[in-house]
Write a protein that binds this DNA or RNA. Structure first.
Lengths: 139, 139
DNA sequence: TATATATTATTGTATGATACAACTATAATA
DNA sequence: TATTATAGTTGTATCATACAATAATATATA
């Protein structure tokens, strides 16, 4: 394994996170990054409870619990009691949530598109696939 | 611009940040991610004040001020008064800071190396370069 | 020179994202 | 039935960030 490549990846990864972490602070009770990912999951793979979500995301249940509660509070998801297990709930995306998810995604895509100005088609494709592959390796 | 690529990048980027953001919680007063980047900067480009650092990092001065104070508190950097301007200070990495920087970097590299198992040399190289290019586009 | 303005940095306060620990309620098991 | 396991929430803590207010000093202007 080429040390230099690993070094670059490691450093640029930290740098990237610093950039992306800069609070977007859209405010107005809209979606935030964590809510976006959660809502995306609910939208693309259907309703489920916080435990499952936490496992999938490799996050603590308490973290997801709060994120889900925030989504519900904003009206983007609804908390539905499990009829077969009175401890359990599942979160389901609402129509309003679908709208906001689409809007937020569009906004994110515009930002990324802007950063990708001057990139070739191949580079974009490659970058996306490598990011995806890297993320898969966390699981 | 291929929408699909942008969509992938945008989504995987959010996912990546979620993974990396998971609190490492090494504790013990050691380095954290922000301290690592700051110390790296001080090490590779020399001493300077928080304003310059904040500009370079695209962070608020207050954020860097706290990060620098944390480094000083841990003994990894020292706060040196500017002899020509009594408002100003520069932060200089200490020997202890150099040691900790090297140790932290090594630790990070091991983690990344682990995630990169099974990747080809070319993929690693490409991923590093694309991350770098993407980060440059923030500036 | 005296006053006004700009600059460097710190500190107070707030939010987002996360974890761990304590707890409640319910289910499953021995 | 008594114990243990499970789903979820809430309290508390840390890291990472921003914005606003402030202190001290430097620079510019009247």
């Amino acid at each position: 394994m080429n040390e230099k490549s690993v070094e670059t990846i490691q450093f640029e990864m930290a740098t990237l996170v610093r950039y992306v972490t800069s609070v977007s602070s859209d405010k107005n009770g809209k979606l935030d990054r964590s809510g976006y990912l959660l809502l995306h999951r609910l939208s693309s793979q259907g309703s489920t409870g916080v435990k499952t979500l936490a496992n999938e995301f490799h996050l603590d249940i308490s973290t997801v619990s709060r994120q889900a509660a925030a989504l519900e509070q904003k009206g983007y998801a609804s908390r539905i009691p499990d009829p077969t297990d009175r401890r359990a709930y599942s979160y389901q995306i609402t129509d309003n949530g679908k709208k906001e998810l689409a809007a937020y995604k569009k906004e994110r895509m515009n930002k990324v598109k802007n950063l990708l100005k001057g990139w070739s088609e191949e580079e974009c494709e490659m970058f996306g696939q490598l990011l995806k592959k890297f993320n898969r390796s966390f699981s």
